[in-house]
Amino acid sequence: TRVETATETAWISLVTALHLVLGLSAVLGLLLLRWQFPAHYRRLRHALW
């Protein structure tokens, strides 16, 4: 049971790290898009909202 718990903890930390990385890359990508294509971003936002 001790090994299982350790594996579970490792998986949880791995998944958390993955989610953090994905979230950060998504935010960075959005910022980059907004910085590179302001007109396109505004049009996209206008279409979405």
Rank of each mutant, 00 (worst) to 15 (best):
T1G: 04
T1K: 11
T1F: 11
T1L: 14
T1R: 11
T1C: 14
R2D: 08
R2S: 11
R2W: 11
R2T: 14
R2Q: 14
R2C: 06
R2M: 12
R2A: 09
V3T: 01
V3K: 00
V3F: 04
V3Q: 01
V3S: 01
V3Y: 04
V3L: 08
E4D: 05
E4L: 06
E4Y: 07
E4V: 13
E4C: 05
E4I: 09
E4S: 08
E4G: 06
E4A: 11
E4M: 15
T5Q: 00
T5L: 06
T5Y: 03
T5D: 00
T5E: 00
T5W: 03
A6G: 14
A6R: 08
A6M: 10
A6N: 14
A6S: 15
T7S: 10
T7R: 09
T7N: 06
E8G: 10
E8R: 09
E8V: 09
E8S: 10
E8Y: 07
E8W: 05
E8K: 12
T9W: 15
T9H: 14
T9Q: 09
T9C: 05
T9L: 12
T9K: 14
T9N: 11
A10W: 15
A10P: 15
A10T: 13
A10M: 10
A10C: 05
W11H: 11
W11Q: 08
W11C: 08
W11L: 09
W11D: 07
W11G: 08
W11A: 07
I12D: 09
I12E: 06
I12Y: 13
I12T: 15
I12M: 08
I12K: 13
I12L: 11
S13W: 15
S13R: 14
S13G: 06
S13F: 14
S13D: 04
S13V: 07
L14C: 09
L14F: 14
L14Q: 08
L14K: 07
L14V: 09
L14I: 10
V15T: 12
V15F: 11
V15K: 09
V15D: 04
V15L: 11
V15C: 09
T16C: 12
T16V: 12
T16Y: 06
T16A: 11
T16F: 15
T16S: 13
T16L: 11
A17T: 10
A17H: 02
A17P: 03
A17S: 05
A17V: 09
A17L: 14
L18A: 05
L18Y: 05
L18S: 05
L18E: 02
L18V: 14
L18N: 01
L18G: 07
H19F: 13
H19K: 09
H19Y: 12
H19M: 13
H19C: 15
H19Q: 14
H19P: 09
H19N: 14
H19W: 15
H19I: 15
L20S: 08
L20H: 02
L20T: 10
L20Q: 02
L20N: 00
L20M: 07
L20V: 14
L20C: 15
L20A: 15
V21Y: 04
V21W: 03
V21T: 12
V21K: 01
V21C: 08
V21D: 03
L22C: 10
L22I: 11
L22N: 02
G23D: 00
G23Y: 03
G23N: 02
G23R: 00
G23I: 15
G23C: 15
G23V: 14
L24R: 01
L24V: 15
L24Y: 01
L24I: 10
L24E: 01
S25E: 00
S25A: 15
S25P: 02
S25Y: 04
S25Q: 04
A26G: 15
A26W: 15
A26K: 02
A26S: 14
A26D: 00
V27I: 14
V27Q: 02
V27R: 02
V27A: 12
V27H: 01
V27P: 05
V27G: 09
L28C: 14
L28M: 09
L28P: 03
L28A: 14
G29F: 13
G29Q: 00
G29N: 00
G29M: 08
G29V: 15
G29T: 13
L30A: 12
L30W: 07
L30S: 06
L30V: 09
L30M: 10
L30D: 01
L30Q: 01
L30I: 12
L30K: 00
L31R: 02
L31I: 13
L31A: 14
L31Q: 03
L31P: 03
L31E: 01
L31F: 15
L32E: 02
L32H: 03
L32T: 07
L32G: 03
L32Y: 12
L32W: 13
L32A: 15
L32Q: 01
L32R: 02
L32D: 01
L32S: 06
L33H: 02
L33P: 02
L33V: 07
L33W: 10
L33D: 01
L33Y: 07
R34K: 12
R34Y: 04
R34A: 07
R34L: 10
R34M: 13
R34P: 03
R34I: 12
W35M: 11
W35P: 11
Q36G: 11
Q36D: 00
Q36E: 03
Q36H: 14
Q36M: 12
Q36Y: 11
F37E: 01
F37T: 03
F37G: 03
F37L: 11
P38A: 12
P38C: 08
P38D: 06
P38K: 15
P38Y: 10
P38F: 06
A39T: 11
A39N: 12
A39M: 14
A39I: 07
H40Y: 12
H40R: 13
H40D: 05
Y41N: 01
Y41R: 03
Y41F: 13
Y41Q: 03
R42N: 11
R42Q: 06
R42Y: 13
R42F: 04
R42C: 05
R42A: 10
R43F: 04
R43A: 12
R43I: 05
R43W: 13
R43V: 07
R43L: 06
R43Q: 06
R43T: 09
R43N: 07
L44E: 00
L44R: 02
L44I: 10
L44T: 04
L44V: 11
L44A: 07
L44Q: 01
L44C: 07
L44Y: 05
L44N: 01
R45T: 08
R45Y: 05
R45E: 02
R45K: 13
R45P: 00
R45N: 02
H46E: 07
H46R: 06
H46I: 04
H46K: 04
H46S: 05
H46M: 15
H46P: 02
A47D: 04
A47V: 07
A47Q: 05
A47H: 08
A47S: 06
A47G: 05
L48R: 01
L48C: 14
L48V: 06
L48W: 07
L48H: 00
L48M: 13
L48E: 02
W49A: 02
W49G: 01
W49K: 05
W49V: 02
W49T: 01
W49N: 04
W49Q: 00
